[in-house]
Structures are given as C-alpha cells and as structure tokens.
C-alpha cells in the first residue's frame, strides 16, 4: 500500500506526559515531535531522569500519554501492537528462564498468532545462528553469559519481522568489551534487516556508532535539545572510532549534553 509506505516508521507529534497526583503533576515529556523513517536508526541520549525511557514506553504503548499522537506505520500504537509491528528489547534480557533459547525466540510467534498472517516470519534457528548462538539453541538462559542473553533478546525482537524496533539501553548492563562486540553484532544484523529503530542509550560512542541521527534530550521537563545528524558512511566498522569525523561528532554530542545538563557540574 502506498499510504503505508508513506507513513512507514515512527511518527511522534507533540506528545506530552505528566506523572503525579492531580494538582501536583510533574511534566515529564513536553510536546515531543520526531519522525523515524523506515530503515533509520535513531538514538535517544540524555542524562538520567530526562524521560528517555518514559518516551520509549510511550512509543511502545506501555504507558498512556496525556497529549499528542504516536503513529506507527500510519496507525495508532494500539492497532500496531495488534498487528505485532513493534519489537521491544528491554533493559534486561527478560527471557523466560524455564524455556530454552530457541523457545524464547519462538515466543513472539506463539503469542497473538492471528497477526502472523501475511508477514515475513523468520526462522528462529536461522536468526539465532546469525547472532552467533547456533550452539546455544537448546540451552537455557541461565547457562548463557549476560551478553549472549541480550543477543537472544534482540533475536526475539527481530524474529517476527516487526517494522519498528524499540531498544531501551539493551547493553547497559554489560562490560565495555562485551558491549562493543554486541553493538557491532546488532549493527551487522540490522544492516541486512533495516527497520526503524529507536535506541535509548547513555553512551555517546554507542549512539554515534549505531545511529543515523542522535536525539539529545534534556530534563525538567523532558525535551529534545538537539537532533544531531551522523553522516558517517555505512556499513560501519570499529575503525570508525579512530577517525576525525567520529571524534568531532563525539565532541559535539558531549558539548550538547553538557549544555543540556546545565552549567552546574559540567
């Protein structure tokens, strides 16, 4: 459908969200607007408490918003979840410990099977193999390292071919060396399965390495301070870290973050 093509991806318009009791409400998201096109990788970065995870939950339909609209592939979040258009990778792997790796990745097919029709479901085994988990199919999550568990969680989000992927600091619990390997693995896989991605992080190099655009968020209330383009060519490799372009971008993002965080401790 042409209109679907036109609206593919994520569109946020003026979304607002407050928490707290009537009369003492705190504004957490202040009229945020953003579009993520199909095949575009957008990172959201900001200090803790700026509302980036709240934003992600709102886009995932897990949190009702007070104002504005969230559209996914041209439909409401509710309709999009019904059609299984959203793949979520939470902060922790959140795997079912009593199920094998393969069964965990099959979960999205087992659930809401009505939405399985007319879509390009992937073979769970193949997806896991491409994530380097071919030997772990029949293992249980408790037998895997943290990095491997997170890869299973990412495989689970890719396997049912959603059009939008939402990732909430998926690598934040891993050590730096593992993180880098996970990043490049994700990038490789995404390169051949270009979805619209919204990736919440608080690592500047991670945001630059992965993204087409970086949204820098400020707090109190959560707002978009700046949207920074990352014009680095793809496919990207770890060699990029050492280039001048990368360092310039890193300086720019860090500078913006400093401004956002006020002049207090920066």
């Amino acid at each position: 459908m042409d209109t679907a093509q036109l609206h593919a991806g994520v569109h946020l318009e003026n979304i607002s969200k407050s928490f707290g009791p009537e009369g003492a409400r705190t504004l957490v998201l202040d009229k945020l607007s953003l579009s993520i096109k199909m095949g575009e990788f957008v990172s959201v970065i900001g200090p803790s408490g700026c509302g980036k995870s709240t934003l992600l939950k709102a886009v995932a339909g897990l949190l009702p918003i007070d104002g504005g609209t969230v559209m996914i592939d041209g439909m409401t979040v509710e309709a999009a979840t019904k059609q299984k258009k959203i793949g979520l990778v939470p902060q922790s792997p959140a795997l079912l410990p009593w199920r094998t790796v393969l069964d965990n990745v099959r979960l999205p097919m087992r659930v809401n099977p009505k939405a399985n029709a007319n879509r390009n479901l992937r073979d769970p085994q193949e997806v896991l193999e491409s994530f380097g988990l071919g030997a772990a199919l029949d293992k249980y999550p408790g037998q895997l390292s943290g990095g491997m568990q997170q890869r299973v969680a990412i495989a689970r989000a890719f396997v049912f071919d959603p059009s939008v992927l939402l990732m909430d600091e998926p690598f934040s619990a891993l050590d730096e060396l593992t993180r880098d390997a996970q990043r490049m693995g994700l990038l490789d896989f995404w390169q051949s399965n270009r979805k619209a991605v919204m990736f919440v992080t608080h690592s500047v190099p991670e945001a630059i390495m992965l993204s087409d655009r970086i949204v820098v968020m400020g707090a109190h209330p959560g707002h978009f301070a700046e949207i920074i383009n990352v014009p680095l060519p793809r496919p990207r490799t770890t060699e990029l870290y050492a280039t001048d372009e990368f360092r310039d971008l890193e300086g720019h993002v860090r500078e913006t973050l400093r401004e956002v965080m006020g002049h207090k401790s920066a």
Binding site: G61, P90, A94, N112, A115
Partner: peptide, 22 residues
C-alpha cells in the same frame, strides 16, 4: 518479570497467553 511482561504486551498477548507463557 515486569520487562518480560512488557515484551508480551507489545505483542498484544491475551490474558490467557500471558498466564500460559509467563
């Protein structure tokens, strides 16, 4: 696990499916 519950909710899992699988 709240986060596993979140994953199921984004898949529009029914109550029965959430009970069965989680």
């Amino acid at each position: 696990d709240d986060r596993a519950l979140d994953v199921l909710k984004t898949l529009h899992a029914s109550r029965w499916e959430i009970f069965r699988d989680l």
